[in-house]
Write a protein that binds this DNA or RNA. Structure first.
Length: 286
DNA sequence: CCTTAGTCCTGCATGC
DNA sequence: TGCATGCAGGACTAAG
């Protein structure tokens, strides 16, 4: 699923391909992809030129003429491609045709992806926290937050930090040696500092590797990312920890799979029973 | 303040 | 082979 590194990869690849192009025609095979009305969406975009492409958190931001902006969230299975594969064709949700007759397709198997227009009077993505790409930003976002919520829940909260999803939250907590269920206010300053160093480092490394392809994520040229070969815990349930060989454990936090090494990321005191319960609930049969 | 469960979705793995 | 079940999860919402 596209998180910050995957969306950044796509933004970088898309930029030289479509900045400067003008929308000629837009068709919506599945109109609910756009949060605005179908007619308004089409009318607003036609004949507008793309002046800039950016990313904020997990959102792609297209800046257009007349200070109009278009955000695209790929959610789990969304991708933007010029040459859809045969099996993609029944999942095409939006078709952008440009004035030079080139065509960009939004393909999204699970229909969770969303697009939204932002008129110039509206602040862009107001509920989004700062990008998790700098150590000091991450530290400031997490420290002095007197929350008893699990640290992993905070990392996934886009209002606290933008761009972190399930994969990189698990990976960063592993590198920092923090159990994902540790209440945020019980994580020491030293550990928070360590987490704040590792999280941006992991995200940047993943960008260098063009993102992580577990199943559906594809780059704009349909290529896979390569960061999946560098994961320490995500998706490695039962496999030996890369540091200590203890089998990686999977529990459920916020109805989401959480992977960690019980040896390198010890549970805080009084949390063993809760971990066991979540484990049963999260992975029946494993 | 917080957590939990439900919603949206389809492909795929599993079990009988 | 085929059919049913349940799981994956980002963001949002409602209920407790």
């Amino acid at each position: 699923m596209p998180e910050l590194p995957e969306v950044e990869t796509i933004a970088r690849e898309l930029r030289p391909l479509i900045v400067g192009k003008t929308f000629r025609k837009i068709t919506l095979p599945w109109p609910r992809t756009v949060e605005d009305g179908q007619k308004e969406f089409q009318a607003a975009l036609i004949d507008k030129k793309i002046t800039r492409i950016d990313r904020r958190g997990k959102y792609l931001c297209f800046y257009l003429e007349d200070e109009l902006r278009l955000t695209i969230h790929l959610r789990m299975t969304g991708k933007l491609v010029f040459e859809p594969e045969e099996k993609d064709k029944k999942h095409i949700r939006v078709v952008f045709e440009f004035s030079d007759r080139s065509v960009l397709y939004f393909v999204d198997i699970r229909k969770f992806g969303r697009m939204k227009l932002w008129p110039k009077t509206e602040p862009l993505l107001p509920h989004l926290g700062p990008d998790a790409l700098e150590e000091n930003t991450v530290f400031r976002a997490l420290v002095n937050r007197e929350s008893r919520r699990p640290i992993k829940t905070l990392l996934l909260d886009q209002e606290v930090l933008a761009g972190v999803g399930n994969i990189y939250a698990d990976e960063a907590l592993f590198m920092a040696g923090i159990h994902p269920l540790t209440p945020a206010l019980r994580v020491s300053k030293q550990r928070l500092r360590k987490l704040s160093r590792h999280l941006p480092e992991i995200l940047k490394k993943a960008i260098e590797n063009n993102g992580t392809t577990i199943s559906d994520y594809r780059r704009t040229g349909r290529l896979k990312g390569e960061h999946q070969f560098f994961l320490n815990v995500y998706g490695r349930t039962g496999e030996p920890c890369n540091k200590c060989k203890t089998p990686v454990v999977r529990i459920c936090i916020n109805n989401r799979g959480s992977h960690f090494c019980p040896e390198c990321q010890p549970a805080p005191a009084g949390m063993k029973a809760a971990t066991k319960a979540r484990r049963r609930k999260g992975t029946p049969g494993v």
